[in-house]
Amino acid sequence: MMTIKKLFIRDGEGKITVLQTAVNLLLALTAFIVFFSFSLKRLGLDLDFSFLFTFRYRLFQGFGATILLSLTSLVLSLLIGGFTAFGNRSHILPVSYLSKVYVQFIRGTPMIMQVYLFFYIIGTAWGVSNRFIAGVLILSIFEGAYISEIIRGSLESIESTQLEAAKAVGLDNRQTMRLIVFPQIMKRTLPSLAGQFASIIKDSSLLSLISLIELTQTIREISSTNFAIFECYIFLGFLYLSLTFPISMATKYLERKFSYEN
């Protein structure tokens, strides 16, 4: 009795054994699958994924588009986030307030509103007609605000003693940035930035609203021709998971690695 209980209860030190992990993970997955198939039974549905094979070329293209879209947006949003994080703390007040307003606006409004607003108003007014470019811009502006906060947080967590020591050994401002501040925030932000990359991948699905042909839009188009909604969206879920799961593992790894070093 005791030994069975032990399998399911975290010990006093909070350690989890490999066996516990295996058993409980299996249990959770089974529960999930049982619930799902039971729901499908009630609907009287039999799932058949085989038709997806005929769409393999389009699916592959959509998958590739999502990856390309996310990677490009990652780079651009890092730039935007970096500049506005430093801008936020700038001694030049207009720059500081511009950064603050940007972050507040983006984080305070839903992405769906921004997608429409930026695409139809700004995109049209400024003549950005290429959907991919528009999509990258919208996604980067959105994610940039979150990355900005991540970077600002870690900038603020740099102890003032580090900056004072940099001054004392005779580093000038640029050297202090390059040799002290930058390496220190790299370590601290890398795990959160990896996590944000997973968000970028998921959030890119909202760009299907402007008919950008990425993964979600591809599935939407396929399901609208054959109405196999369940198969389509279950498969879509697995495709996104195949991208975000490795990133989530990497995030955990980075968190552990850097928690030891600091």
Binding site: E159, T161, Q162, E164, A165, A166, K167, A168, V169, G170, L171, Q175, L179, I180, P183, Q184, K187, N262
Partner: peptide, 29 residues
């Protein structure tokens, strides 16, 4: 400042560098 050595009460070492790298950084840069 470049002619003067300054030691703080605590936490004056750069915490992303090893002890040796801490000593080397001002010399090199």
């Amino acid at each position: 400042r470049r002619n003067i050595g300054f030691v703080f009460q605590s936490k004056g070492l750069f915490n992303h560098l090893t002890g040796k790298e801490n000593i080397m950084l001002p010399l090199v840069h």
